[in-house]
Design a protein around this nucleic acid. Sequence first.
DNA 1: ATTAGCACTCATATAAAGAGAGTGCTAACA
DNA 2: TGTTAGCACTCTCTTTATATGAGTGCTAAT
Lengths: 368, 368
Amino acid sequence: MIRQGDVNITERQRQILSILIEEYVATAHPVASEHIVGRYGVNVSSATVRNELVELEKAGLIVQPHTSAGRVPTDRGYRYYVENLMTPATLSLNEQRKIRHQFHQIEMDADEWVRLATSVLARSVHNVALATLPRSTAVRLKHFELLSVAERRILIVLVGHDGTVTQQMLMVEEIMGQEQLSSLSARLNAAIHDKTGKEIEDWSEAQSLPLNEAKGPKSEGLPALAREVLAALVRILSRMGSPDTSPIYREGLSHMLEQPEFHQPEKVQQLLELFEHGSEWSGLVASVLNQEGVQIIIGEEWHKGGISSCSVVLARYGVENQMAGVLGVIGPMRMPYNRSVSTVQYMSQLLTDMLYRQLNPQLTEHGE
Amino acid sequence: MIRQGDVNITERQRQILSILIEEYVATAHPVASEHIVGRYGVNVSSATVRNELVELEKAGLIVQPHTSAGRVPTDRGYRYYVENLMTPATLSLNEQRKIRHQFHQIEMDADEWVRLATSVLARSVHNVALATLPRSTAVRLKHFELLSVAERRILIVLVGHDGTVTQQMLMVEEIMGQEQLSSLSARLNAAIHDKTGKEIEDWSEAQSLPLNEAKGPKSEGLPALAREVLAALVRILSRMGSPDTSPIYREGLSHMLEQPEFHQPEKVQQLLELFEHGSEWSGLVASVLNQEGVQIIIGEEWHKGGISSCSVVLARYGVENQMAGVLGVIGPMRMPYNRSVSTVQYMSQLLTDMLYRQLNPQLTEHGE
DNA sequence: ATTAGCACTCATATAAAGAGAGTGCTAACA
DNA sequence: TGTTAGCACTCTCTTTATATGAGTGCTAAT
């Protein structure tokens, strides 16, 4: 799969580019021709390497910060590297075990898994990890409960067919005891079990007309509250279906700031502003949700002039269109991509497995 | 209330100190004697001011970064200022209204209020705001529900008598339908209603003995699950009573980094590490929970060598020993204390009112 | 095609010099 | 005794000059 159309370079140039990038990733210093000779089969003189470097520069894959400095990869250079040159890494079995081990606390729900995953990921790649919570589209109501929290305050707890749990406070006019609420929820549950938000809305409208006409037999004050509850359920279900609104968890900033590219304070502030204005992410997240595999966004590919010199490595986790989210890493453009990719890949696979088991409990028993 | 025992300075010195601190807070530059003359009734020459400055320096309230520089307040200087000199500010009615307005979304629970409060606070003081969630001691169980999330996975939702809601996942051996769970929870609710964690534990132990002996009549598999549920309830209740474990919400880092003291990257990193190792905070939080009023911690008063040059302004909110948390501001030592204090005070009062109303719903109707 | 050799460029480090801000001190003054 | 003008002194910050050295591009030889 060779994209990056117009790039056409010889085998040796590719080798040199690869060495150069890996050297630069490791040291953060512009790489001189001298430092390339003698490594991994490059048995030519520095002059020859310099000639090749000129070619690579013409192709737009590297630049020099100033005359008489070594070379540094460009956005395009990294792009070519991750697509053609990078040797894909796999986490060692030991690392895999260490990570899996942290998920062996049983009593957690999906949200907590994801939060833990960001934390593990951040430590593992020494950069900032981020994730969105898993959201389903078109959730079906499995069951809900009404809990009287205080007079006039009712808590609605809702379980979707996919195991997601959401809660929502509701203020009401009437004062209701827990018993009344329980009987109401029992009655409603029976009626709207397994329906989607849309279906509940329809059902609720269908009910309201007949009820108004035949108001003799069974309307001792309940309908108003019931309608409020139903409306709230519909709202919750529709919100659960839209992934954009979900908060984004972040962790590992202090690791990231150890990197030399963040020694100028403006860079740091740019970065933090990006984090605190979460809205910028939603487009990116949405696009990753629709794609298979690990996505790499390098430098300004995402966002002209935004966080230059940063890259993002993202992957979807979960079950497509059913219960999916995004998790990944953000770090300086100069990051060890193969490690990032493999770690993100492993974490997303792990989360996917766990969610899959949650949706299909009968498979649970064969795990480690 | 003049603490700071051994400090004994004249009225004019106090005036000068006050001007100096306010000037330094505003400009972030060491303050020269020339800049003090002519302000707020200081009608003496710069030479006289210099003489007074020497006295203030002897008292340890100010220092000069180097010979031939202006003066800068020390930790003790700020301490004296906030305790004796600072003119307490009140938020303007306009600001108060603006803040209150943001809390007028009805459908929120206590946790969401607190999260919103940190966000508002951060914007208002242009620094980092932080808060702990409200936790009660010795929560009594008001009601709980069991929800079948998936086969073998049960969600426990628990409402405390103070309106706190907590959820917890539970893995079990048996496969139970929602109906069975509902009837189990109905039976248990009736029995352990209004008990504390400790009381539930006792009750549960008391039950297990008789049940084992008289195992004829009513033991068709339920007790095992019931015991698991009870154990989980006890665990949840005890966790709800310990405030240390609650996560700490933070916001506003990008504001804070605009301050010139964070133009050296090491400072930034120190700060972030402090945030990510949340454990350091728990002692501080615990002590603030036991005190009335706004607490100010200046520079190294908290933590020798830790985040020097930062101050924290904290206050408890909520109802003591019933449902309380901590919220406040962290910023550079050079911060406008009176504004921070008044904002923190107002926010904590606001949260307290809201929690109080939640606990006593009959008062709700007279509010704005 | 490769490479040794070398002049050239430019960032970085080091030193010296100058400017300016602000002090401390002294001596005069009310 | 408290206040103030005057001034020398100190120390930072900026500027300028100089040196160093890493790394390149080019040329000419292999």
